[in-house]
């Protein structure tokens, strides 16, 4: 079972929910994976302190021009949709950061003047934190697209294994790549106008992708009831409400777990775990009937 944790707005507590839930679940589910798909700003390891057992770079093929064979016809530039190739006079310049490694230029070149060479875009990490398996990545600074690295990080989880996937902020390509193929999406929000606005965008996104989802309200009790009202109107299940508490912010700031670090907080994550399990079971039953 793959559960993705996303939010739309950043800083609502995605990583907090993901690491606390994953760690709590690993008490009874050994072999569970925590997968940090926020390869732009990975934070899960700061809380889980996994023992890293393997690290390797990820390379993508990028074009390299053989100037002796190139006649400057510009066909490669015409096909490139990402402006990664430029023609200066009769010389082709490559901007590898902009290249998406689609291979179009290599196919377009009529003189076999383009070969693809590996280019490092980031690193992949594997490890273990107690009973919890860890997989994550780190995008190299200056590389624009996180999507290929996220794909690779997700592929570290064996097919049949359960995983919690921690998504990056927003709703664009890296988030879509993270939640693709998930069995369930948890949307973490906070009861503020920003949180609600971005929750609505996130809800539209997961609905468009046809994924089942539920909501966790973090920092609940900030006197803004609109989020609860919205969920009720839309028929969206709220699986847990974690209260607003400066203590939680302090425990988080030190990189500690909320469910073990603050007396009384374990119940919020336990409740989330139980409701989530029930949700997923009911989905599985439905699909068996069909």
């Amino acid at each position: 079972m793959r559960i993705a944790i996303a939010s739309g707005k950043g800083g609502t507590g995605k990583t907090t929910v993901a690491v606390n839930l994953a760690s709590l679940m690993s008490e009874t589910n050994s072999g569970l994976y925590y997968v940090d798909c926020d390869v732009e700003e990975p934070n899960g390891h700061l809380f889980l302190n996994p023992e890293v057992t393997a690290k390797r770079p990820l390379f993508l093929p990028k074009p390299s021009i053989n100037e002796e064979l190139c006649d400057g016809c510009g066909e490669c530039k015409v096909i490139c949709q990402y402006n990664a190739l430029a023609l200066i006079g009769e010389k082709v310049l490559v901007f590898p950061e902009l290249c998406h490694s689609c291979g179009g230029c290599t196919l377009a070149c009529t003189r076999d003047a383009i070969t693809e060479v590996p280019h490092e875009i980031g690193s992949i990490f594997e490890g273990k934190a107690g009973e919890l398996m860890y997989a994550g990545g780190e995008l190299k600074i200056g590389i624009p697209s996180a999507v290929p690295l996220i794909k690779e990080v997700k592929s570290m989880v064996p097919n049949m294994d359960d995983a919690i996937l921690d998504a990056p902020a927003g709703t664009s390509c890296p988030v879509i790549e993270t939640v693709r193929g998930a069995d369930y999406v948890l949307l973490v929000t906070e009861p503020t106008p920003f949180g609600l606005n971005d929750l609505k965008i996130a809800v539209e996104t997961v609905r468009l992708l046809g994924l089942p989802f539920g909501v966790v309200i973090n920092r609940a009790g900030m006197r803004d009831e609109k989020t609860n009202g919205y969920c009720e109107e839309e028929g969206i299940k709220i699986l847990s409400e974690i209260p607003n508490d400066r203590k939680a912010a302090e425990v988080y700031s030190r990189g500690q777990m909320l469910y073990t670090g603050i007396p009384g907080f374990r119940k919020y994550f336990k409740e989330l775990f139980l409701k989530l399990t029930a949700e997923i079971e009911s989905l599985t039953e439905k699909s068996t009937v069909i």
Binding site: I141, G142, Y252, S253, G255
Partner: peptide, 18 residues
């Protein structure tokens, strides 16, 4: 001043430096 904030600051500062 959270350990995530610091880690993310370093990466984004590296980017502006880049």
């Amino acid at each position: 001043p959270t350990i995530s904030g610091l880690s993310d600051l370093k990466r984004v500062a590296e980017l502006t430096g880049h």
